[in-house]
């Protein structure tokens, strides 16, 4: 029982990342009709917003320590962050320690602007082109973006730790009456899950309870009629692209302490996220979220030793296996609507 609970918990944070990326993908597909293969790159850029913000906060001035030497035998250059100089070592240190949560504020305008430029500069020229063209151009863009990131940040992962207050793990087992250490779950992953749930809830609330959201939903259902009513739906859809980019970016920022960001992390998530979207049902926002969590949890279960000993290698194929089964039984996915991507 404890092993099952453990894997459910593990699946939640993985599922959170899938759900957030898939939500953005579905928003873009549902509003603009664009299959955006650069969406994983937006997740990666979000993570690198955290890296950049951390680097900005740790910008340092150099003093020479004559008593120590560097690897060449020269007097050691000691780096001291400006932030610590300005606010004192304690406050300055705390600001640096909280670099990742603070990077959320930095990343929102960056990602919205990035999404806006991407949509106006490239994507809008492909609205009326076949999906194959859209996939090719966005996949190409993803490769360009990851190579740019590699050029500036290198190929190695860059450590981007969570604040000290959130290091370590919570012993869930003790809370539920199991033995100590039976079910442990890192604090930061718990925060990631809560954060993802909040973002997902906020996006749904925005679409459900605001006039803007209502117009967008109407546009998703019947773009032509909304246009005939004199509403500039294109402008709203551009803003939705910015919103989707921000959601992917926020998912990336908060994911940075879970696995050190590297230039390739977007591609690692992209394919799985597309499977999530297809399983959830193309164009269905609740479907994307449900499928994200479902596949994340199933992936975790497939990593259990007990299951791997019966079905070796199942952890690598479980998501695709489930996708095949769901698409065979429900060709439009879990919550897919009739008529989406059906000519």
């Amino acid at each position: 029982m404890d092993a099952i609970l453990l894997q459910v918990l593990n699946g939640l944070d993985k599922g959170s990342a899938y759900a957030l990326i898939a939500l953005g993908l579905t928003l873009i597909f549902g509003t603009l009709g664009v299959v955006n293969f650069a969406h994983g790159a937006l997740f990666m850029i979000g993570a690198f917003c955290a890296v950049t913000f951390q680097k900005l906060l740790t910008l340092s001035y150099i003093t020479i320590d004559e008593t120590r030497t560097d690897f060449l035998g020269n007097p050691l250059e000691v780096k001291s962050p400006y932030v610590e100089g300005w606010f004192g070592p304690e406050t300055g240190g705390a600001i640096i320690d909280w670099a990742v949560p603070l990077a959320i504020l930095f990343s929102i305008p960056v990602m919205v602007a990035f999404g806006f430029v991407m949509e106006r500069g490239l994507i809008k020229h492909f609205y009326k082109r076949p999906h194959a063209d859209q996939i090719l151009v966005t996949f190409g863009l993803a490769i360009v973006l990851q190579e740019i990131v590699k050029y500036f940040f290198g190929a190695n992962p860059i450590p981007t730790p969570a604040p000290d207050a959130f290091r370590g793990s919570l012993d869930f087992g003790v809370l539920l009456g199991f033995d100590p250490n039976a079910i442990i779950y890192p604090y930061w992953r718990l925060i990631y899950f809560l954060f993802a749930s909040f973002i997902i809830g906020a996006v749904f609330a925005f679409l459900q309870f605001t006039t803007f959201g209502m117009v967008v939903r109407a546009g998703m259902a019947d773009r032509e009629t909304v246009g005939l009513l004199g509403i500039n739906i294109d402008k709203r859809f551009t803003l939705m692209f910015g919103l989707a980019a921000a959601v992917a970016g926020l998912a990336g920022v908060m994911y940075a302490p879970i696995n050190s960001p590297n230039y390739h992390m977007g591609m690692d998530f992209l394919v799985l996220s597309f499977v999530v979207v297809v399983v959830g049902g193309m164009g269905s926002l609740p479907g994307a979220v449900a499928a994200g969590f479902l596949l994340g949890i199933l992936e975790s279960f497939a990593s259990m030793n007990e299951i791997k000993s019966i079905l070796p290698g199942i952890d690598q194929i479980i998501i695709y296996l489930v996708a095949i089964v769901i698409l065979l039984t429900r060709p439009r996915g879990l919550l897919g609507r009739k008529g989406v991507m059906e000519e």
Binding site: A3, N10, K14, A182, M304
Partner: peptide, 15 residues
Amino acid sequence: LAATDFSSYIAPVLN
């Protein structure tokens, strides 16, 4: 080899 998140492999270690 392609794994990026090892949480599901690490979680059972303590137990």
